[in-house]
């Protein structure tokens, strides 16, 4: 294993950690808005780091660019859907949780 392999594995560990944290937030956070925060931020960062790891691992520059393109598309998807879900929740009268 080269030093690059170690870097890739380290990045994969960090990435997986963010996916785990995203799910923890999803389960623990008190309302749909905070859960959206957990999902959008943690999972997107997790995917970004994962894609960085796979791009470093890949021998082909074009494959790396395509991986980046995939991340950008997921970002667009997440950003639009989270906005729409939050708006749908507000319009259907879901009150944000407030610290008691």
């Amino acid at each position: 294993m080269s030093w690059m392999d170690f870097l890739v594995i380290a990045l994969l560990i960090v990435s997986t950690a963010f996916f785990i944290v995203g799910t923890i937030g999803l389960l623990r956070f008190p309302d749909v808005y905070s859960r959206l925060h957990a999902l959008t931020k943690a999972d997107n960062l997790g995917l970004g780091i994962l894609i960085l790891a796979l791009a470093l691992n890949s021998a082909s520059g074009l494959v790396s660019i395509r991986l980046m393109l995939t991340w950008v598309l997921v970002l667009v998807a997440t950003a639009t859907t989270s906005h729409l879900i939050a708006r749908a929740a507000r319009e259907s009268g879901v009150e944000p949780w407030v610290k008691p």
């Binding site: 995203g22 956070f29 957990a38 931020k41 943690a42």
Partner: peptide, 24 residues
């Protein structure tokens, strides 16, 4: 800021006290 945001939400989710003071 994506990194900052990810770390921020991670720290909040992981702490047992779960420090959240949300609002609109």
């Amino acid at each position: 800021n994506s990194v900052v945001g990810g770390v921020d939400v991670a720290l909040r989710a992981l702490q047992p006290s779960m420090p959240l003071t949300p609002g609109i």
